[in-house]
């Protein structure tokens, strides 16, 4: 409603209350995390909790990286992008193409996968999303188009690569033991790379001009426009960034799973949405934190119930969050 705009400039600002409202959920989240961790340590033992947490950080890292692009694109363009999960798949297969078909060293192949994903993201923006926005397409219209795009991407990949399980041919038997926690070496790599990338992403968003402009646009597009940001350029950069990071997240997810099919990205999509909503839709840092939280919650749940349930637990967290606090941990009430 137009009312929020009309009152936003009201001089009667109650700053203390505003701060209190915003800080409380963070505290609550932290308190819940500590309480759950303590309960799990007491009930299941320190080692089991540590192991689950490490596993959670592994999956959390690629969920976080997948979610950050999804949330930025939503915030910037109000596009609920159902094709984002398949961008992860695309990145994973592009890296596979680089490694196997082009014979690139793996690290180069990963960079190649990321680059190709970024370019594809930009192409979709230029060829599809931008013209549609110019036509004045509504949010639902764009959402449905992303659904169609998801089909084209997923089955396009399947058309080329087939339905068989693929892997990068990385040695997955090697196990590292740190502090008595056992972890496949690949998983350790995924976790370290993932966390480093999350931090790098956060720094890019916080410190670079482009990053700040992306966040500004995602947070409040009308504000960004009036402050003279070249929105067309930032939107393009946002797509490059979102798709590129999604491609990278796809490679990490594929490495961690060690076996992937053209469907895996789509299967991750709801977890990505869970991360996005947990962190507050449109909030890039929120998505990073939300991703890690989803990973942790899913793995912690395996201490209590069969591991088969962990994905469903993630979705339940999504629904509970939507009921309790749809604006997410970092969001403010007015945005929902």
């Amino acid at each position: 409603m137009s009312e929020v705009v009309a009152t936003a400039g009201a001089p009667v600002a109650d700053v203390d209350e505003d701060r209190r409202l915003r800080d409380r959920p963070l505290l609550i989240t932290a308190a819940v995390l500590v309480a759950v961790s303590l309960a799990l340590v007491l009930g299941e033992g320190l080692h089991a909790w540590g192991q689950a947490s490490v596993n959670g950080l592994v999956s959390g890292s690629y969920v976080a990286l997948g979610a950050v692009g999804l949330t930025l694109v939503y915030g910037t363009l109000k596009l609920t992008n159902f094709a984002h999960g398949d961008m992860l798949t695309f990145g994973a297969y592009a890296a596979l193409l680089g490694k196997v078909t082009l014979g690139l060293p793996f690290v180069v192949a990963v960079a190649f996968g990321m680059l190709v994903s970024a370019v594809l993201g930009l192409l979709f923006e230029l060829g599809m999303w931008r013209p549609m926005r110019r036509k004045g397409a509504g949010a639902f219209q764009l959402m449905l188009m992303s659904l169609g795009l998801a089909f084209v991407l997923r089955y396009g990949i399947q058309f080329v690569a087939g339905t068989e399980n693929k892997n990068y041919g990385i040695d997955t038997t090697a196990v590292v033991t740190i502090l008595d926690l056992r972890l496949a070496r690949v998983e350790l790599v995924v976790m370290i790379v993932g966390v480093v990338l999350i931090l790098a992403t956060a720094i890019i968003l916080a410190r670079t001009t482009l990053g700040r402009q992306m966040r500004a646009l995602s947070d409040n597009s009308s504000l960004a426009e009036t402050t003279g940001i070249d929105t067309g350029r930032i939107v393009s950069v946002t797509w490059l960034f979102a798709a590129g990071v999604a491609g990278l997240a796809g490679v990490l997810a594929a490495m961690a799973a060690n076996s992937f099919t053209p469907e895996f990205g789509f299967r991750l999509l709801l977890s990505l949405f869970a991360a996005v909503i947990l962190g507050g839709i449109g909030n890039a840092y929120g998505a990073l934190v939300g991703g890690l939280l989803i990973g942790l919650v899913q793995e912690w749940s395996t201490l209590l119930v069969d591991a088969n349930w962990k994905i469903a637990i993630g979705f339940s967290v999504l629904i509970i969050m939507l009921i309790v606090r749809p604006q997410g941990i970092f969001g403010t009430a007015g945005r929902v």
């Binding site: 009312e3 929020v4 009667v12 209350e17």
Partner: peptide, 10 residues
């Protein structure tokens, strides 16, 4: 009536 900590109607 508050909006995000702003008292729109006071």
């Amino acid at each position: 009536k508050h909006f995000r900590g702003i008292r729109a109607v006071d």
